[in-house]
Amino acid sequence: MPLTSCGNQAREEDLSRTAGQVKDMAKVVRRHVIEMIGEAGSGHPGGSLSVTDILSVLYFGGVLRVDPKNPSWPERDRLVLSKGHSAPALYAVLAEKGFFDKGILPTLRKLGSPLQGHPDCRKTPGVDASTGSLGQGLSIAVGMALATRLDGRDSRVWAILGDGECEEGQVWEAAMAASHYKLGNLVAVVDHNGLQIDGPVAEVMSPEPISAKFQSFGFEVHVVDGHDVEGLLRLFTSLPRNGERPICVVADTIKGKGVGFMEGAVGWHGKAPKGEELVRALTELGKVNEQ
């Protein structure tokens, strides 16, 4: 058997092993998200659950170069959660990755907590930018990517945007700048779940076709199933670290993914499950074997 296919096979085995681990972690993260928001009595489950697989692949699939023991390591990759309301998913991932003690997850949104309702990079280790006012994260990521280039580092900058967020003009100012500066070290991921607060994105104010827009703004665009862990892994690990153009990944997702009654339901954008709902959600997400 030629060496290459042997190598391919090994790589495939590696990938499916990693994918298995990522899926387990994503399950843990989804439980944390529901527990945290349930405990807080407020928050945004829909967009947190739709972005969970993406974040899990980035942090647990070996895509992001980070060091939980040294959150401000200059050589690290940066992640800007531009859709800041999905903070619970990011916090759960960061805690599981070891940036801080999991024990503080239940303090989400409480007075004095480092886990603010929206990401605050001055309060939470591992959070690279403060977000919450939609539309600003891609600009911040462009600035980070420029600094990376000025300093001659090979780190990469990721920005995660909502599809409703793409209605903000600033997103396109930033997209224009990213390709003008040929920021091949920048990846924008759009959590393409089709919903915003007041209804389907297509009905409220359609920014579609999002992938064609990013393409025409000069991005290399990939469309992927945002819940297909193998597919995400394969794509993310194959992206050039520093190509000629910025990259956009449009990840098709389901808002509320993993909790049946939240899936595709506009009403679960920014509402905490209570009592019976909380029990049903956690039952569906299943027991997790804490390792």
Binding site: P74, R78, V80, C121, D128, A129, G135, Q136, G137, L138, S139, I140, A141, V142, G143, M144, A145, L146, A147, T148, L150, D151, G169, Q170, E173, A174, M176, A177, H180, Y181
Partner: peptide
Amino acid sequence: PDRFFNVGIAEANLMGIAAGLALSGKTV
């Protein structure tokens, strides 16, 4: 010239890029 960026007529983006550079250690 290497440390100057003209972002065009896009003031929101101007401030965002400034923040990103500063968060990466630059005095902007």
